[in-house]
Design a protein around this nucleic acid. Structure first.
Lengths: 230, 230, 230, 230
DNA sequence: GATGAATGAGTGTTCATTCAT
DNA sequence: TATGAATGAACACTCATTCAT
């Protein structure tokens, strides 16, 4: 074991100190669960505190209000993964179809299947009541996400793989199915027991296949872009 | 009395009686607006009553509780148009691509662009807190909707127009973009001012084009369904 | 009985209506008692409501916050009696000494001995925590009061009854003993049981005598104003 | 060691020990400031601790509760200077008018103009909520103060300088203006910016002049004590 | 001794719901 | 039937006090 690889812990931290450092994280996690499950208004701060194993007073030691707790939850869980993804995108070798499939898969692994997906549900559900934070979300998540997708599509078009389409709307072709899936998972999908539960992997496969190839057997003529040939 | 000035009133009724009969409807309309705009919790019953032009007490004359009001709002606004639509579907003459396009357009006119679209937003946002009514929604809207879409796809496949795909998931290819649009309109789209506002018609056009034809220029081989020929 | 002397009560008021109209007054009275007795912070709104015979919620129907209740209490109880007093002052016939005695007596009857005196105690005790309302008090009570006293002193000087002294400070000669009395009554005087209770009438008599004549047997030479004659 | 640079420290003590010994005093000083400024309820113990440069926990090491801290503040700051003053009184040479003037001046220097004046404001404001300590104040300050004033007045009467008046009330003639001044300074005077600020020296001069000589030009007949002559 | 993280009882305020009129 | 005054349970938030370190 290399001697320096583990960051020396100057103060090994007493039990109390360790707890203190862990508190905000524990609270944010508890809050994420409950906000996603019940919405902002129906979540009681006592409940968040209890789930984090502390008293109500302690919660307010770390977050000055329920609203700030909410904001912190959103901020915490959308930490810019975009830089990393953009890098992956630049270095990807292969067809753009493969790249898009890869992105869907990676997204599902890192976001869609994790609690982070609940944030999107939360955001869309509560945006009206938190315009300030909706704007934050727009800048930190939506725009970077659209931008990333747009570059993928541009790559496909540039390489002659994809049709030349209006990218302002095409990004939603890629994003809408994922966003829908997150909403669905955390709403109807989570509370209607007899709903034949959507298997996410199959859902994603079907979506990506169709995004790439469409429903038509012989898709010779997308209505809005007439066939190039004579 | 001018002969045409008064819209024919089947039961002429006094103003008071007319109002009385109209009360629940006015309340439901006011409640729909407010629930969609602010969500269940953030909507005050006083506000609903005020917007309907009655007192708070009167509201409780017609609806025993805020929850029941909510349920009534959802029930009232998801009234099955499916019978009518199913009929249209049966009698449609033309390609299934055309049918699908037609459905999107009709849906946008009758649902997507109307207040009814708010109901879907409401439902997805609040489902967890109203499992009973989420189930109702599932039975009254989701399943009939899926069924309708499924029959369209079956028609397309049967006629050799569409690829043979797993219909359990393919229905979401058609539905997800519409549902996403409704969510979007009533959340981020309604409160982030500088968001380049999604033009719904262009959005829908792009989606339907891609549903039908996909992104790929030469979509000879959808990955999951190998080409049938030898 | 003259037919018109009693203002016709158009709506004789149901029991409920009568209560409604009486509510703010009952609440203000209860609040005055408790604020004077315990101070602003130590007074619980439930207690105010209970003493007024209503629930806590009802209190907030009439006053939007505890602070506004406090402000209303102060405003309510210092309603401008100054106009009336100023009028009395103008028409008074007699020496200014008599006028001053009369004022003290009237003040004691109408303010000093009533609950209104508690307001002054309240104001002086809480001024720091309510600068806004302290300013209001300054304008509505202190300045008019000083002005009234000043005119009395001017009258005395003009008629040759009083020494010519700096009125900016002389007003406090007249006011301080009354203000002190109100403070005393509502603090030490109200809670130290064995304090030989200050008899207000005797206190006032002593003060006014001394204000007029001073302690000295032969007050020939107030230090700051040398005797005028040779 | 330079002979004069270090203030003689009876027990030289280390810095820590000195601080330790000084703690309660620093806390009491901080508490005095804050209690006077904001009243008992509006003063936060954290703030007191912070101003004293210690943690909240440390405060509770020295004072078992906020109430006890309050009591200690009052007790500490009303330490009887009466013995010293009584001595001065006994040995004073001069007229009693001069003595009274001297007392006012000394009082202003030692009490009125210092933070100690805040204690009186505090006491009068909070007496009702602290009857126990109000009683203490009565015994330690009020009664000795009255007694001291009474002896001055007795001296004046005995020497034929002052009118023979009921001393039980006459003491207030002397005390009320000073007590008023302390209240005023720490309430309205401290928070109403545009109040023409009472200059204490002029105020005191005016009061003492009037206490001694009264307002009347020819004060031949104080109403309650008929002229001695025939 | 000193700290400051943790507590939880207590408070002001809200709002769905009731009911006398 | 309609009202709106009244309610009180419920909630977010505060802050004096405790106690492990």
């Amino acid at each position: 074991m290399p001697p320096t690889s583990i960051p020396s812990q100057p103060h090994p931290a007493t039990k109390r100190e360790r707890r203190k450092e862990a508190r905000p994280g524990e609270l944010l996690e508890a809050a994420l669960d409950l906000f996603v499950e019940k919405g902002f208004a129906a979540t009681r701060v006592d409940e968040v505190a209890a789930r984090a194993g502390v008293s109500k007073g302690t919660l307010f030691l770390y977050f000055p209000s329920k609203e700030e707790l909410f904001k912190a939850v959103v901020r915490e869980n959308i930490a810019g993964r975009f830089e990393e993804w953009n890098a992956e995108l630049e270095t990807f070798v292969g067809t753009t179809s493969e790249l898009l499939r890869y992105c869907y898969q990676v997204w599902w692994e890192r976001i869609g299947s994790t609690k982070a997906s609940g944030i999107t549900k939360l955001m869309l559900s509560e945006a009206q009541n938190f315009p300030e934070i909706a704007q934050f979300y727009q800048h930190e998540v939506i725009l970077p996400g659209q931008s990333l997708v747009r570059r993928i599509l541009e790559r496909g078009i540039a390489r002659g793989e994809f049709r030349a389409i209006n990218l302002d709307y095409a990004v939603y072709v890629v994003l809408a199915p994922m966003i829908f899936l997150m909403m669905w998972k955390h709403s109807v999908g989570a509370c209607v027991p007899d709903a034949q539960h959507l298997a996410p992997e199959a859902y994603i496969d079907t979506q990506i296949d169709n995004i790439l190839h469409g429903l038509c057997v012989r898709p010779d003529a997308p209505s809005s872009s007439p066939p190039p040939s004579a």
